[in-house]
Design a binder for these strands. Structure first.
Length: 872
RNA sequence: GCGGGCGUGGUGAAAUGGUAGACACAAGGGACUUAAAAUCCCUCGGCGAUAGCCGUGCGGGUUCGAGCCCCGCCGCCCGCACCA
C-alpha cells in the first residue's frame, strides 16, 4: 500500500496549536506531584535564534517531556536576557530606541522558538528589560544594601574604551573586553560592588556538594576563587631618610623557605613605591614603564623580570644581624596578597630569574628527597618539589609542611611595628563583583546621592526607578547621565535637591536570579519564598560552557544573597548542570579567499573526492576546516530555513543524534537528510502497521510466534535503555536505540504480511512504544502517529510505557570462548549454567578440541553467563 | 608554565576489565523504474581470500583477559596564567 509522505509543514503548526489550546505545558504551583525543574540558559534577544540555541533547547525539551511522561510536575519556562549593550549600538545605528529594538527581537525569536515545538510554559515568560522584572531586582539591591552585602568604593577598574564602560575582572579576557575585544585600560572610579569575596570560602567548599555538575566546571570555579593558605609576615625596615614607614607586610605560601630569602619586592602600585617614586626619578620612570606594560597583558607572559632597588633594607626576621634589600619589581601584583613579597630564588622560578639578573644570593633550603646536600645546586630551574628543609637553623630536617607550621608558631605572639610578626592567613583570588555600568540599557541602581544626607537607597514605595524613554545616543557614554532631567530628584530624607545614581547594573545581575523569578513570575515581591523553595533548585540546567565562571558563579552568589535577605531558602540554585558542546560546520572559501555560505555551494562527489563550486558562477570553492558556526566565517545554517525545509522534528532529531551532547556537533547536509529520511520511515512503518492490522481484523490473534517474542523483547529493552540514556543525558545513545527498534519493526512489518496473526500484536505494541520513545525528541511526528494509531488523547500527556522486567532477561546466553585471550568461538547455554557444566561442554566442542590439538589446558577461566577463557 | 579533557574505520561515534567498531553518515554493488527521485537488499578496519594473521596515538607493565587500570612518551583541544 502506498502511504502519503509525512508533511511536517502541515502537521507541526497544527500540533503546536493543539498543545497551546490544551495548555499542555503550563505548570501549576499547586500541583501535588513530584516537581521537576528543567531550564535552558535564556537567550539574549539578538534578533534570530541560531543553531546553538536549537541544540540547547532540543536537549532541554527531551528532558522536560520525558519527566512529564514520568508523571512529574515539570516546570520548563523561557525568558529573555534583554538588557545589554547591543541594543544601544542598534539604537545608534538604526535610530531606534533600545527598547523598541529589543522588543521586536523578542517577538521574532519567540515565533522562531514556537516553531520548534518546545514544551515551554509561555505563561511564565519574562524579559529582564521590563520594569515588571527589574523593579524586583532594585528591591533586592536595597535589601542587600541593608544587609551589608553591597559596598561602594573607589577602585581601579577595567575600563573598556570601546564600550565606554567598566568591566568586572571576569569580563576581561586576555586583557581585552569580553564583548568589544578592545584592550582594557585602568581607571580610578567610584563603583558599586557586591561583596562576593565574603562568600569565597562558602562558594568554594560548596562546590564539593555539586556532584551533578561537570568536574571541569567545578575545577574552573575552584581555580577562579583561588584559595591559598599562607602567612602574612611583617618585616622591619632599617631606618632610612627616604620614608617614615617602619615595616613592610608580605604574604607568602612558603614560609618554610624563609631562610632562603634574599630580597623583598614591592609592586609598582604599592603605597611605599608611590611615596618613594616622588623623590626617586629612576623609580618613577620604572613605575611608569610598568603601567605602560600593564595594559598589554599579552606581553606580560614573556616579559623579563625587572626591578629597581629602592635603597631600603629590611631586617632578616630569623637571621640576626642580616638584612635584605627591598626592590620594586614588575612581576609583583598589587591586588593579590599585600602587594609585596619576599623572594626565595632557590624555590620560586620568578624569584630565581630576578636574582640571576641582579646577582642576588640563591640559597637552597629545601633538599629534594634522595638528593645529596653537599652536591645539590640550583641551576636555571628553581626547585619547587617536596623534600626536607636544610640550611635553615631550627627548621633543619623538617618536611615542607612541618616547617610551614613551625615558622608560623615561631612568629606567633611576636610583633613588629605594633603588628603581629606572622599571622596565618587565607587569601582568595576572587575579587568583589563590580556591578556599576555607565550605560543606559540596564537596570537602574536605585540610589540617590544627597549632599546633605549622603548616599541613600530609593524608598521601596518609590520603586521602580524606571528608565526614561526620551533618550538620545548622540554622545558617547552614558545616555542616562546625559538626560536633562531624569537624574534630578529630591532627597527622600531631607527633601532637598539631590541626584540619582546614573550607573546601571551589570547584566549578569539580571541573569543571576531569573530562574527564581520563573517560579512566581507575576508576584508583587521578587519571589514568593515558599513557591521558590518548592521549585528550586533547578533539577537540570543546560547551557554553554562559556558561562562556567561568570554566570554560574554570580548566580550561586546571588542565591546566597537572596537567602540572606529572605527571598529564598537555599544556597545552591542548580542541582544538575550540563554544558553542551558547540555546533560546527565546514567552512568554504572562494577563489578570492572570501568566506562563502553553505547555501551558495554545490558539491560534486567522485568516489571519496568531494569538491565544491559556486551555485551561480560555477567557480571552484575550497572546502575548509570544520569550525564553530559564526557569522564572520559565514558557515552558519539558519534554523528558520531548516524548519521550513525539513521541519523542526528533523532538526531536533539530527541535533540529538551522532555526537555526545557535551561534545561539539557537526552540522552536515547529509546528516539532516538522513534524519529526514528516518522521519518518513517511521511514518511509513505506522501506515503499514495500521494496514496490516486492518487486513487481519477478522483473524483471531494467537500467541506470539518466535519473531513476535523477539520483537517484544527488543521493544521493552528499548524502552528501558532509552529511559536510562535520557536520564543520563546520553541522547546520542537513545537515538541509536530507537534506530535499532525501528529497524526491527520495519523488518518485521515487511515479513508480517505473509503470516501476520501470531505477530501482529507484538508489532502493534512495538510501534506504539516506538512512538512514545520518539515523543520527547520528535514530538510533532509522534502526535501525528499517535492519532493515526487511534490512540486517545495526546502522546504528550501519555505516561511513559511500562516495561515487563521478565522481557529484559534472556533464558539463554551466548558465551564467547577465548583461547589465551583471543576469541575462537562461542557457545549458547542456558542462563546461569554452572561453570563446571560450561567447561565440560566447551572441552567437548569439535572446534575447541581441534585447536587444543591434544594439549591439556593449563587453566580455564569461566565467568558464568559472560565468557570462557581457555589458557594453554 | 599549571590544571583538566581527548586520541578507536573514509566520517560522527558505540563498548559495567569479558565477542572492538552498535547506531548513523559517506562510498560501492544490486533490485524496482522507460528514466530519475523515493524505497528495498547486499558489501563496507587492514592484509590474506580456506577453519589464517594484524588492528583502539607510541613504548612498557598489571591481568586468564586491557580501547578501558598503572608508568613513561607523542599529538590535539579547553581553561587559568607573573596569584608569591
Amino acid at each position: 500500500m502506498s502511504v502519503e509522505r509525512y508533511n511536517p509543514r502541515e502537521m507541526e503548526p497544527k500540533w503546536q496549536q493543539v498543545w497551546d489550546d490544551a495548555r499542555s505545558f503550563v505548570a501549576s504551583n499547586d500541583d501535588k506531584r513530584e516537581k521537576y525543574y528543567v531550564l535552558e540558559m535564556f537567550p539574549y534577544p539578538s534578533g534570530r535564534i541560531h543553531m546553538g540555541h536549537v541544540r540547547n533547547y532540543a536537549m532541554g525539551d527531551v528532558v522536560a517531556r520525558y519527566h512529564r511522561a514520568r508523571g512529574k510536575n515539570v516546570l520548563h519556562p523561557m525568558g529573555w536576557d534583554a538588557f545589554g549593550l547591543p541594543a544601544e549600538n542598534a539604537a545608534i545605528e538604526r535610530k531606534t530606541h533600545p527598547g523598541t529594538w529589543t522588543r521586536a527581537n523578542i517577538a521574532a525569536m519567540r515565533t522562531q522558538l514556537k516553531s520548534m515545538g518546545l514544551s515551554l510554559d509561555w505563561s511564565r515568560e519574562i524579559a529582564t528589560c521590563e520594569p515588571e522584572y527589574y523593579q524586583h531586582q532594585q528591591a533586592m539591591f536595597i535589601d542587600m544594601m541593608a544587609a551589608g552585602l553591597v559596598t561602594r568604593k573607589q577602585s581601579k577598574v577595567n575600563w573598556d574604551p570601546v564600550d565606554m564602560t567598566v568591566l568586572a575582572n571576569e569580563q576581561v579576557i586576555d586583557g581585552k573586553g569580553w564583548r568589544s575585544g578592545a584592550p582594557v585600560e585602568q581607571r580610578e572610579l567610584t563603583q558599586w560592588f557586591f561583596k562576593i569575596s565574603d562568600y569565597a570560602e562558602d562558594l568554594l567548599s560548596a562546590l564539593d556538594g555539586l556532584t551533578d555538575w561537570p568536574e571541569k566546571v567545578r575545577t574552573m570555579q575552584r581555580n577562579w576563587i583561588g584559595k591559598s593558605e599562607g602567612l602574612r609576615l611583617q618585616f622591619e625596615l632599617v631606618a632610612s631618610d627616604a620614608t617614615a614607614v617602619q615595616s613592610l607586610e608580605v604574604f607568602t605560601t612558603r614560609p618554610d623557605t624563609i631562610f632562603g630569602a634574599s630580597f623583598l619586592a614591592l609592586s609598582a602600585d604599592h603605597p611605599l613605591t608611590t611615596e618613594l617614586a616622588k623623590t626617586n626619578a629612576v623609580l618613577s620612570e620604572f613605575v611608569a614603564e610598568c603601567h605602560r606594560q600593564g595594559t598589554a597583558t599579552e606581553a606580560l607572559e614573556k616579559a623579563e623580570k625587572k626591578g629597581v632597588f629602592t635603597g631600603l633594607y629590611v631586617k632578616h626576621p630569623v637571621l640576626e644581624g642580616q638584612t635584605l634589600p627591598v626592590y620594586v619589581a614588575n612581576f609583583v601584583l598589587m591586588d593579590y596578597g599585600t602587594g609585596a613579597i619576599f623572594g626565595c630564588p632557590a624555590h620560586d622560578q620568578r624569584d630565581l630569574d630576578f636574582a640571576r639578573k641582579y646577582d642576588l644570593p640563591v640559597i637552597p633550603v629545601v633538599l629534594p628527597n634522595g638528593a645529596d646536600a653537599a652536591s645539590f645546586v640550583i641551576g636555571d630551574e628553581a626547585n619547587v618539589d617536596a623534600g626536607h628543609i636544610y640550611n635553615s637553623g631550627f627548621l633543619d630536617g623538617l618536611t615542607v609542611d612541618e616547617a610551614k607550621k613551625a615558622v608560623a608558631e615561631h612568629f606567633a605572639g611576636r610583633t613588629v611595628d605594633g603588628k603581629p610578626q606572622g599571622k596565618v592567613e587565607v587569601n582568595y583570588r576572587l575579587r568583589d563583583w563590580g556591578v556599576s555600568r555607565q550605560r543606559y540599557w540596564g537596570c537602574p541602581i536605585p540610589v540617590i546621592h544627597c549632599e546633605v544626607c549622603g548616599t541613600l537607597p530609593v524608598p521601596k514605595k518609590d520603586l521602580p526607578v524606571v528608565l526614561p524613554e526620551d533618550v538620545s545616543f548622540d554622545k558617547p557614554g552614558n545616555a542616562l547621565d546625559h538626560h536633562p532631567t531624569w537624574k534630578h530628584v529630591n532627597c527622600p530624607q531631607c527633601g532637598g535637591a539631590a541626584r540619582r545614581e546614573t550607573d546601571t547594573m551589570d547584566t549578569f545581575v539580571d541573569s543571576s536570579w531569573y530562574f527564581a523569578r520563573f517560579t512566581a513570575p507575576q508576584a508583587e515581591t521578587p519571589t514568593i519564598p515558599a513557591v521558590a523553595d518548592h521549585w528550586l533548585p533547578v533539577d537540570q540546567y543546560i547551557g554553554g560552557v562559556e558561562h562556567a565562571i561568570l554566570h554560574l558563579l554570580y548566580s550561586r552568589y546571588f542565591t546566597r544573597a537572596m537567602k540572606a535577605t529572605g527571598h529564598v531558602g537555599l544556597d545552591e540554585p542548580f542541582k544538575g548542570l550540563f554544558t553542551q558542546g558547540m555546533v560546527t560546520h565546514e567552512t568554504y572559501k572562494s577563489e578570492t579567499g572570501e568566506w562563502v555560505n553553505p547555501t551558495e555551494v554545490l558539491f560534486d562527489t567522485n568516489g571519496e573526492q568531494r569538491t565544491g563550486r559556486h551555485i551561480d558562477s560555477g567557480a571552484p570553492i575550497t572546502i575548509g576546516s570544520v569550525e564553530k558556526m559564526s557569522k564572520s566565517k559565514k558557515n552558519v545554517v539558519d534554523p528558520d530555513e531548516i524548519v521550513a525545509t525539513y521541519g523542526a522534528d528533523t532538526a531536533r532529531w539530527f541535533m540529538l543524534s551522532d555526537s555526545p551532547p557535551e561534545r561539539d556537533f557537526q552540522w552536515t547536509e547529509a546528516g539532516v537528510e538522513g534524519a529526514s529520511r528516518f522521519q518518513q520511515r517511521v511514518w511509513r512503518l505506522v501506515g503499514e502497521t495500521i494496514s496490516l492490522i486492518k487486513q487481519s481484523s477478522d483473524i483471531v490473534r494467537t500467541a506470539d510466534d518466535e519473531e513476535g517474542k523477539t520483537l517484544r523483547k527488543i521493544a521493552h529493552r528499548a524502552v528501558h535503555s532509552v529511559a536510562d540514556d535520557i536520564e543520563g543525558l546520553r541522547f546520542n545513545r537513545a537515538v541509536a536505540q530507537i534506530y535499532e527498534l525501528t529497524n526491527a519493526l520495519v523488518r518485521s512489518a515487511g515479513i508480517a504480511s505473509a503470516a501476520p496473526a501470531s505477530r501482529l500484536d507484538a508489532l502493534a505494541d512495538g510501534v506504539e512504544r516506538l512512538i512514545q520513545l520518539l515523543a520527547p525528541m520528535m514530538p510533532h511526528l509522534a502526535e501525528t502517529c499517535w492519532a493515526e494509531l487511534g490512540k486517545a488523547g495526546l502522546v504528550a500527556d501519555a505516561p511513559w510505557p511500562e516495561v515487563d522486567p521478565a522481557l529484559l532477561v534472556d533464558d539463554s546466553v551466548t558465551m564467547p570462548i577465548q583461547i589465551n585471550g583471543k576469541r575462537r568461538g562461542e557457545v549458547v547455554v542456558a542462563k546461569g549454567t554452572a561453570a563446571a557444566d560450561v567447561e565440560k561442554l566447551v572441552l567437548s566442542m569439535d572446534e575447541i578440541v581441534r585447536i587444543l590439538d591434544g594439549k591439556a589446558p593449563k587453566k580455564i577461566v569461566i565467568v558464568p553467563d559472560r565468557i570462557v577463557n581457555v589458557v594453554i
